[in-house]
Design a protein around this nucleic acid. Structure first.
Lengths: 172, 172
DNA sequence: CGCATATCAGTAGGACTGAAATCA
DNA sequence: CTGATTTCAGTCGTACTGATATGC
């Protein structure tokens, strides 16, 4: 928490000559106090991760929600939208559009539940299962790239820490 | 998240295989394969973190960008918008609006750089410094809440791992 | 009645793109 | 000329907030 004696004079304001060509390369590192904040680090890496994932997925006309949803159906079996929503942390209102997309692609079917007429039952199709396997492979590679700088042990640590944190903040 | 027991039916067309991972009884956690993905875990925790941070900040009419920007100015001294942009990873086009907000609040001043007339020099004001200290305290408490389930050692581990990951993905 | 479900309309902030004008 | 800086006008995906109609 270094307090600096001040230097808010315009004359000092001519820093760095960045080396290299980088498109928008970083001449400065992020401010130390910001860089030390878990929430900032987290967010920065989440941005990178989401960008990688999104990039991989748009190649096959998919989005993050698709994977969560297909995986949930595969594990839970046919379920109502509300149940899938709870399992995936996808908001109920967003479920509607997401399922529409998956229905359009033939990966799931939406049928009314005869036992409870408020509900729709969402059913994974064969094509949906194949798509899920495809996504599994694709996203596996992405994770690999994201965690490249970490050793197997460290990757495990990271997943463990995040798992505990997420668990703590989603079940109080 | 409310949950109900449920046992809703429909074992129609497709034989439902239950994954080996369902924790206990009712309500489903996220699908195991999704839950094991670093990018998903990361994003879930980032959502929680961003929500906490945003909530704390709206209480004093601030946003995340404000903190990054004020902290950067405090450490770098008066700088051009482009330099601050590189230091904070805030896009150049978003810098404009962010600085406008901070100027409105009296936390920074934007003046043309006499040495390079393309540039604006952004200067942290006294009020800006006070706001920065306020944000420091406020966000410190938020981090505390976010990392509550981790021991000091583990917090350090997390920060270390994330730091390396972010470093690896922002300086290629 | 209170509660759940599905749907729709709309908001807010954030990341990002493309192009313009200005100037080194 | 090339390249950097500021600014504007948008897009896009995402998280989230109601409100509504329907059925339990």
């Amino acid at each position: 928490v270094a307090r600096r004696p001040d230097s808010s004079s315009i004359a000092t304001a001519r820093p760095v000559r960045y080396a290299a060509s980088s498109l928008s390369g970083h001449g400065h590192a992020a401010p130390a106090r910001v860089r030390a904040q878990p929430s900032w680090l987290l967010n920065q890496f989440a941005i990178v991760a989401n960008r990688s994932v999104a990039e991989a997925l748009t190649g096959i006309d998919a989005r993050r929600y698709h994977y969560s949803l297909l995986a949930a159906l595969d594990e839970m079996g046919a379920s109502s939208q509300a149940d899938v929503s709870r399992a995936t942390s996808i908001d109920r209102s967003d479920m509607v559009a997401t399922i529409n997309e998956l229905v359009d692609r033939g990966f799931v079917a939406r049928t009314p539940d005869p036992a409870d007429r408020r509900r729709n039952v969402i059913i994974l199709s064969g094509a949906g299962r194949r798509q899920l396997r495809k996504l599994d492979r694709l996203l596996g590679k992405v994770q690999e790239g994201l965690l490249a700088p970490l050793s197997p042990d460290e990757r495990e640590q990271l997943v463990d820490l995040l798992t505990r944190l997420v668990g703590h903040h989603t079940t109080p």
